[in-house]
């Protein structure tokens, strides 16, 4: 790796700063990789629910971002009322799962037999209803949600850097959820039914499984994961109406890259998107600065970096049209 290291070092050297040392750069690189991983696992929490719902029920759920928002609002409200982030976190899971279940029974259930266009239309309406509902309840100004005391501050990294403890915790939660989902789907009866539902919906209905309840449970599970992501991220960002939609777009990119319906694909896709996006924002402007004036390079670099994940998605789709881990159709 020394060649690569020297190469990147020379790229970074264009930054007007003499203080660069190899060690410092390694620390920066590790920090950025962790940032990419953290963004990735957060996207995974969103994408896992999205892909599960699509895989099992064949439903495109645009309102998934609203469930993320509901999680964040529930956590912020309950945390403000009780003074405990942890109670807020439980509330976010409960609220998102509860709203998810209600939505499934009231609206989504009517859409399974319709084509995707009807589903997109109805779930887009849900976005509008839930957003304006949240604005009506909580107002347009962002809510305050702080990181719990236990996870405040930063921890040292090898190489002399520091990393925010809370982001490490998010990575931990993401990995735990990935393992949990794997066990749930491969080792439990519910998981068996989910897998069966993915491969042949009519048949498991005929075998006497209550398909209606199964769908509600899967939808609520996906909603809870989105709510969890919203609550976790809400403490880092601002809790406000419309916070879910930008994440939803990235989550769709993730499941398209990973292969629609595949949890493993969602995990791999999420990490790819997270790392590529972070590294692009960090490295592209410096790379361009080698060939053009610094101020131009930062502007063009920033513009290119924002397209990078879509370029990666297009490339992956060119070689694997149904994504990296396409579930059997």
């Amino acid at each position: 790796m020394p060649g690569l290291h020297a190469g990147i070092r020379s790229v970074i050297h264009v930054l007007p700063n003499e203080a660069w040392t190899g060690l410092l750069f390694t620390a920066l690189l590790i920090e950025q990789l962790l940032n990419g991983l953290q963004l990735g696992v957060m996207l995974f929490l969103m994408a896992a629910g999205l892909t599960l719902i699509f895989g099992v029920m064949g439903l495109i759920n645009l309102a998934h971002g609203s469930l993320y928002m509901i999680g964040a609002f529930a956590c912020a409200t309950v945390a403000a009322a009780t003074g405990s982030f942890w109670i807020g976190l439980i509330a976010s899971l409960a609220a998102a799962a509860g709203v998810g279940a209600i939505i499934e029974v009231a609206v989504i259930r009517r859409l399974y037999d319709r084509d995707h266009l009807d589903q997109v239309l109805a779930t887009f309406a849900l976005i509008l209803i839930l957003s304006e509902g949240a604005r009506w309840l909580f107002g347009s100004f962002p809510l305050y949600l702080d990181i719990p005391l236990l996870l405040q501050g930063a921890v040292p990294l090898p190489g002399g850097g520091q990393y925010q403890l809370y982001r490490l915790a998010i990575i931990g939660v993401g990995i735990a959820v990935a393992v949990g989902l794997y066990l749930l789907i491969s080792r439990t009866r519910l998981g068996m039914r989910i897998r069966a539902g993915e491969s042949d919906r009519e048949m498991i209905g005929a075998l006497g499984v209550d398909i209606g309840t199964l769908y509600t449970v899967v939808f609520a599970l996906g909603a809870a994961l989105a709510g969890l992501a919203g609550a976790l991220v809400g403490a880092l960002q601002s809790v406000q109406v419309g916070m879910g939609e930008p994440v939803l777009i990235l989550a769709f990119v993730v499941i398209v890259i990973g292969g629609i319906g595949s949890i493993k694909g969602a995990l791999v896709g999420a990490v790819i998107v997270g790392v590529v996006d972070t590294m692009g924002r960090f490295l592209l402007p410096s790379l361009l600065a080698l060939t053009m004036p610094a101020s131009q390079a930062t502007t063009i670099g920033a513009a290119l970096a924002s397209m990078l994940i879509y370029v990666v998605m297009a490339l992956i789709l060119a070689f694997r049209p149904s994504g990296l881990f396409a579930a059997q159709a």
Binding site: L39, Q162, T278
Partner: peptide, 10 residues
Amino acid sequence: AAEIAQIRAS
């Protein structure tokens, strides 16, 4: 996060 990392290292 990516920008803050660059600030830290700058």
